[in-house]
C-alpha cells in the first residue's frame, strides 16, 4: 500500500536554532499560534528529530552548533526535508564571512527549500512549508547523508548502525587545518 500521500497531511516539524538572532524563531512561533493555526494542516511542532519530517533550521550555523546540526539531521528518519529559514540560514546573511560562523547550513546538510527574509514572515514560512511538502511527497526512503562531519554507518551481522555516523569535530571529515578561522582552505571553500 502506498502511504506517501499521507506524508503531506501530517508534517511534523523539528525546529533547530543554529545560532539565530531569535527573529525567525519568533516568527515560527507566530506561525504556529492560533492566529495562523497551522494545526489545521496537521502540522505539529514535535521537537524530536526521531518523529519529525521537516527540519526547520534558523541561524547561520555557528561553530558550536555544527556537530549538533549534523547529528539532528542524522537522527531524522527518511523521508525528510530541510528548510533553511531566514537569510543567514540560506547564505550567512549579515554574518557572512565572519570568523565564528559558517555561511549557511547547506555546507553541512542538503537543503530542499530556502526561505529568505530577515526575519521571514509567517506567511512566507507557511508557503515554504507547503512547498517542502511537495518535495517530501516525492522523496524515497533511501538514506540521505550529511555533507560534512559524516561517515558511512557501520554494518555488523547485517545490522546497520548509524549512531556514530555523525562525527565529532576533529575525528574526520574535517582536518584540524580546516577548522582554524581564515585558513587558506576555508577561504577556498568560501569561493566555491
Amino acid at each position: 500500500m502506498d502511504f506517501s500521500r499521507y506524508r503531506k497531511r501530517s508534517p511534523w516539524i523539528l525546529h533547530y536554532n543554529a545560532g539565530s538572532c531569535n527573529g525567525c524563531d519568533i516568527e515560527i512561533l507566530a506561525a504556529l499560534s492560533p492566529r495562523y493555526d497551522l494545526e489545521r494542516f496537521g502540522v505539529l511542532n514535535s521537537g524530536n528529530p526521531k518523529q519529525s519530517d521537516i527540519f526547520l533550521v534558523t541561524g547561520p550555523v555557528t561553530y558550536r552548533s555544527r556537530e549538533r546540526l549534523v547529528e539532528l539531521y542524522n537522527q531524522m528518519p527518511e523521508p525528510k526535508v530541510v528548510i533553511a529559514l531566514g537569510s543567514c540560514t540560506c547564505t550567512g546573511g549579515v554574518f557572512r564571512g565572519m570568523y565564528n560562523v559558517e555561511d549557511g547550513i547547506d555546507r553541512y546538510i542538503p537543503v530542499d527549500v530556502y526561505i529568505p527574509g530577515c526575519a521571514a514572515s509567517p506567511e512566507l514560512i507557511i508557503d515554504g512549508v507547503v512547498q517542502a511538502l511537495d518535495i517530501l511527497e516525492k522523496k524515497t526512503k533511501e538514506r540521505e547523508n550529511a555533507k560534512r562531519l559524516y561517515s558511512e554507518p557501520t554494518t555488523e551481522n547485517g545490522i546497520t548502525d548509524r549512531s556514530n555516523s555523525a562525527q565529532k569535530i576533529g575525528t574526520g571529515g574535517f582536518s584540524p587545518e580546516e577548522m582554524k578561522p581564515n585558513s587558506p582552505e576555508r577561504r577556498e571553500n568560501e569561493e566555491d
Partner: peptide
Amino acid sequence: RSSERVGEYRCGEK
C-alpha cells in the same frame, strides 16, 4: 535486522 540503529536523542550533543 532491517531497521537501522540510531543513537539516543541528546539535543544533538555527541
